[in-house]
Write a protein that binds this DNA or RNA. Sequence first.
DNA 1: ATGCCGTACACATCGCGAAT
DNA 2: ATTCGCGATGTGTACGGCAT
Length: 333
Amino acid sequence: MTKSSLEEYILAMTGLHAVLGEEVSLRAPLFIRQRYGLHALHVGGRRFLAIRPDTSEAFRPAAFEKHLREISKAMPDMTGYCVITRGLAGYVRRRMTERGIPFVDVGRQLYWPQLGAACQEKVLKAHLPSADTLSPASQAVVMHLLSGEIRQPTSAKALSGRLGYTTMSISRCLDEIEGSGIAPVERKGRERLLHPQDTATLWARALPLLQSPVRKVVRIMETQIAGERLPLAGLTALGELGRLAAPGEATYAIWAKTWNGRLQKTETIPIEDEGTCLVELWRYDPQLFSPSGVVDPFSLYLSLKGNPDERIEKALEELTENAAPAEKSRPLR
DNA sequence: ATGCCGTACACATCGCGAAT
DNA sequence: ATTCGCGATGTGTACGGCAT
């Protein structure tokens, strides 16, 4: 049962026939023999030592490497080995590949350089998080970068403090940003540092992965948000920046999360009327990037992109060219 | 030895569309 | 209209491991 599923899995992943053979006994210390089941494993005509850790204890790659030295001492003619597991935690599997320990986690992942094989069934995105759009939190990090606020390499912890996300969310953002090659992420000891990046380059790289920050637009009475100092957005913002005549009805932006918490009960108005305004509910917090009371030009661009009005299209182009000057004659540092 | 950072896994919440 | 299911999004908790 277990035997055949191991063989089947190896065949499916590598195309090589595998046969789990006889048990191997060793003149190794007792705790080694108790802790690991050892079998011959023939794969593609080569003989390996299959090492099955006792499942009652958590598998520890660092400890295993010490044990491995004992095993190879007791078995000098060993040509190769592989750890056979089932249901190993993701981070342990990552340690294994980092340390170059060949292993088969049946049904999930196979890492076996001697066979020239490394496959993963489901969790490929853990290594290649290249989706076609960035998550809202990642986009917020990109906006933070574009704003020029980051002047030196910045840790996930520091970013979480500034942007109002948990370090864990930021950690995922760094995965995305690193995976999609938008900006350099350096691993320095235990920290991961996001490096600042030239605005024009950053914008060009990130643009295909960015989405409109606007999740939804609601119309309410302007008095409902009187004391809130929400940043101006949409066509109102474009007007404010002198790019276009401002429309009659003002548009504001607010983080959808905040809206849900405080203003959900606010009555929405179906049509434009005296005293009404539009509120855009954003995927991330517009206030983070709008010190002047107007949303940042990049988010504004994204929120209005695709608008059929030619004048708006033109105004937007000017806007971003201004904010992220294209690769003109700017000397590189 | 201890504190702290980053991360895996599990879970909560929300929005939206399909099914009833 | 209501319920159900699912994906997207973000968080809580536990834990490995580096730095001091």
